[in-house]
Design a protein around this nucleic acid. Structure first.
Lengths: 211, 211
DNA sequence: CCGAAAACCGACCAGAGGTACAGTTCCGAT
DNA sequence: ATCGGAACTGTACCTCTGGTCGGTTTTCGG
């Protein structure tokens, strides 16, 4: 990616993935034609099928790449949060704040989540792609769950909640926030949704007395 | 719908919408072919275009019908909640509980939200359809906002939250919960997401002393 | 400079999506 | 019974789409 030495073929592959991602998030998978992609990237049919054996293969590569970049963003944000504060609850709250900022700084709003798109095209894809999708969701759960476990050592929830479900709720708010921001035509909405959720997290946990 | 007298034409129209909704939620809009729909409903191309002037027109009718049914469900649930309890916070909490039950009782999980699908196909649709979509989101906001306003007369939030944003967060949790349930291949997940959110609402509000 | 692998070209195909419209059947009101 | 519109049928046509394949150029190590 960023300046990494890559062959001409790799560069073309990346350009195809970029074009595909933009178009798919805008119009959907089936509405994105191969003809359209190769026109944008300045190559021909043969060139495309040299890189991907079929359209499903493209979707697979795209989803993998998307998830990898997504994970990178989360890693960066939460390691940054850990550097700045110690208390696990404060780490989580700061992480949500930083995440909200990232989402809010996107000029046209979040472009959409490939995982969400894939769930709505489930039946069109092969098993492997569906598994990639499920794994991404589980990865999110593990990530947030880990932080929640740390929080649990020093705080207790005012109301009983299962931590796996609370972890999933973070993902739900993000996915749902993206949908709502698009539906409302209000790019900043996603940021506010995250911050409102953050306030609710803050209200949920109460410090356990030391000892 | 339910037993209401309808002409043969209306019945066909409904069957077409039923088939379209099922297919669109499963495969997406563009992947749903007219040929497929007419085969399922036992009529021909011409018959289809007698009812809908084009595919966009079908989408429009479908979205309108979906939203109307959706509103009916919410109306029923929250009026039921109002009949059972008095306190506004309890009405909201009971409403969320009933909603969770409805979602949990769907054998194959929530089939998906047409509004969410539409947001990911935005650029394909005309302005009218996009407006319908936005209006649906605003309608949800008004609905939940009204309840939250009532709650605000007797409770205060532990952390500062904007009530419009909290209202939108309800929608986000529902939309995101549907996506996550599909991604995780766990139909019951949506129900648990709603209940976890419910617990957070309960933790958020604290009674204002009378007087 | 050479040769082989990588990267790409472009003609072609079968089938699906979508449009148009003239003709036919159904059906209820008069 | 019959008339007129509603509810279709049948067909002809055209574009676009995913995908194939043999051939050509580019690249690059030796």
């Amino acid at each position: 990616m960023t300046g990494a030495r890559m062959s001409k073929g790799d560069a073309t592959r990346q350009r195809l993935l970029d074009a595909a991602q933009r178009s798919i998030l805008e119009k959907g998978f089936t509405a994105t034609s191969i003809d359209e992609l190769i026109a944008e990237c300045g190559l021909t049919k043969g060139g495309f099928f040299y890189h991907f054996k079929d359209k499903n293969d493209l979707a697979k590569a795209l989803l993998r790449r998307y998830i990898a970049e997504d994970e990178e963003v989360y890693d960066r944000i939460f390691s940054q949060a850990r550097d700045l504060v110690d208390d696990p609850l404060q780490v989580f709250l700061l992480g949500l704040k930083l995440l909200a900022d990232v989402m809010g700084d996107m000029p046209n709003g979040h472009p959409g989540c490939m995982v969400a798109v894939s769930t709505y095209y489930e039946r069109m894809f092969d098993r492997e792609l569906r598994d990639i999708n499920t794994e991404a969701a589980l990865q999110w759960r593990r990530r947030f769950r880990a932080i929640l476990d740390e929080i649990g050592t020093r705080y207790r929830p005012r109301e009983p909640v299962d931590l796996d479900e609370l972890a999933d709720l973070v993902s739900s708010v993000l996915e749902g926030g993206i949908v709502m921001a698009k539906a409302l035509h209000d790019p900043v909405s996603l940021k506010r949704q995250i911050l409102t959720f953050r306030a609710m997290v803050q209200a949920l946990f109460v410090r356990i007395p030391e000892g």
